[in-house]
Design a protein around this nucleic acid. Structure first.
Lengths: 346, 346
DNA sequence: CTGAAAGCGCTTACAG
DNA sequence: CTGAAAGCGCTTACAG
């Protein structure tokens, strides 16, 4: 038997028009029923519902969106969906979106500026209501027309560059100061810092905090105690080996992020027991840090809270909050577990 | 100076019509330029481009989508975006989507069947081209009309229930057999199994593999050696304490997933050194498993490969591959690190 | 090479 | 309580 209406063809779908025809009512009446509006007789409504059921109709929200303005979707652009730091952030953004009736587009920039821009603009072309961005680019002027056109945008983890925009950050410099002060309090004077590539905002801020804490305690920083660059294990390993050897080795390391910390833990675990243990404090907490021996002392960020805060600010903007851009800073938190409490003489 | 066109108002945007008016050409000509079609004089084209530039026009892809059919977007529904097992899977799906010119909607079901359904249907209403689903529900008949209407759907990690659909899975039973055989080969006869809640497909399959391996070696399984349920730490801790004590304690544990394994590691680490060490093999690998002492022996899945395989199958379907639903199984891989190689006499 | 008309599937504004 | 018309911003099919 051939299909009764176009709607029954594979790959095509019934529309409100089809439902209206089958129920013998006008298009607008179907729309009323589908949207739960008042002013439809119970009898009419049940005829419409029967037609919807029989045809397997489901409203096309893409069409609805075109007519309505808001798309009830937001976009998230970050470095890497799979990164254990960013995945709780994503989840938090998603939860807030859900609570506000929005769907979430998610995409990874892989820390490539062009990919960030491509993704963000593709999302703008879809007319997402708003954007949460962990920036990879160092120039966000490309977003100015989009923001002016009404796409609310909140940056998270790192601020926007060359435009004035909302941002939710961790107090990176403050956390770094606390980490380094902790090592100093345990007697260290020669403290190394291995961080991510310079010009990444968080890396620069943590370096600043390191320098400030050293200066505040009257300690000079030797050039070869600081290393900024890719967080690839080979580089971190080589730099740590270098800093920890020679006539005047560092006695403690402040690791600038998660990946550096993990490599440092590996390197330290491999060193012979005879060698004096190096103290270690890392920026960013990570799963199982407490199960390692020694446990790893860290400055913990709260990525879920970063995401939640950013998304909530986004939806406040969408609800009309029109003050000038804000920068929110969340504190880091020192978690003492053992690796940061060796004295230089242990 | 008041804005020259409606397009300049805050929150509203120029359309092709505005561009056409400004450039003094027809709508279709603008469309041709925007879409890089041929058959436009260089002179006309540059007039159009100038108008686009001046107005800050960006094509509204939502409108385009409505007219074209394909939305160039796919949806991903999984248990938890932030879970370290699923986040590489998400990233892999995203990469394949990107390679195929699609954007990705992502959402977490939180293992709640109603949330899975709500999310999946919301995505269908947006008319995503396809769906990758890690199911939480045990009845997917609600998706039948959507699939029939042309929304390609691939299940991953767990199969669909009550409908016939594509699925990409790990060979859970096979992996579990290998894990348990490994413990048996190291001399264990009394082996416990703590798994996730029954009726979760992967949990049931791993239990099956455990039983099969025991049976294959002529070993009976005592009822109190098996515990299926929520993977909350308190429960796992209590069950492990129970199994490892009493007159006839287990000498080895096969942990049914990541979360169970981590809790087991904690519990074992807390036991006094005097107690005989329990051997442990976990299902699922996890970061730093090699840095723990002892390193944790696991059956590793490849979540990124699961995601990639599922997404690639999805796009093959979208390109017209219309064979009947397939079930692909990827192998697990035993990684020996120390925790699974204690004999019962150590 | 160029453009006017119709239509994608809805909602809005209005009339009966 | 109900529905016909217009329109959201594009693309398609067609004509000049």
């Amino acid at each position: 038997m051939p299909p009764a209406t176009t709607a029954a063809r594979y790959g095509s779908r019934p529309t409100m028009k089809d439902v209206a025809a089958r129920a013998g009512v006008g298009l607008k009446t179907v729309s009323r029923v589908v949207n739960g509006e008042t002013g439809v007789t119970a009898e009419t409504e049940s005829r419409v519902r029967a037609a919807i059921e029989a045809l397997g109709f489901r409203r096309n929200d893409s069409a609805r969106i075109l007519r309505k303005g808001r798309t009830a979707s937001i976009g998230l652009v970050l470095e890497d969906l799979a990164d254990p730091f960013y995945s709780p952030l994503s989840r938090a953004v998603e939860e807030v979106a859900r609570a506000n009736g929005s769907l979430l587009f998610a995409g990874s920039s892989a820390e490539v500026p062009e990919r960030e821009q491509e993704l963000a603009l593709a999302l703008c072309a879809r007319r997402v209501d708003g954007l949460v961005i962990v920036p990879a680019s160092d120039d966000h002027r490309y977003l100015e027309p989009e923001i002016a056109a009404g796409i609310a945008t909140v940056f998270v983890d790192r601020p926007a560059s060359r435009i004035d925009a909302d941002a939710v950050l961790t107090d990176n410099a403050g956390g770094a100061r606390e980490a380094v002060a902790h090592l100093i309090a345990h007697g260290h004077r020669r403290i190394g810092f291995i961080g991510d590539r310079p010009h990444i905002h968080t890396a620069d801020e943590r370096l600043r905090g390191y320098r400030e804490a050293m200066a505040a305690h009257g300690l000079a920083v030797r050039g070869d105690w600081v290393s900024m660059g890719a967080t690839a294990p080979e580089r971190v390993r080589a730099e740590l080996d270098r800093m920890a050897s020679g006539p005047d080795p560092v006695t403690a390391l402040f690791a600038g992020n998660n990946r550096v910390t993990v490599t440092a833990v590996r390197v330290l675990a491999e060193r012979e027991r005879s060698v004096r243990p190096l103290a270690l404090v890392g920026f960013d907490d990570f799963e199982l840090a407490d199960l390692l021996r020694p446990g790893v002392t860290v400055i913990a960020q709260d990525p879920a809270r970063l995401g939640r805060t950013a998304a909530e600010l986004l939806f406040r903007r969408l609800d009309g909050a029109a003050e000038s851009p804000r920068r929110l800073e969340l504190p880091g938190r020192l978690i003492v577990r053992g690796s940061g409490e060796f004295s230089p003489h242990d």
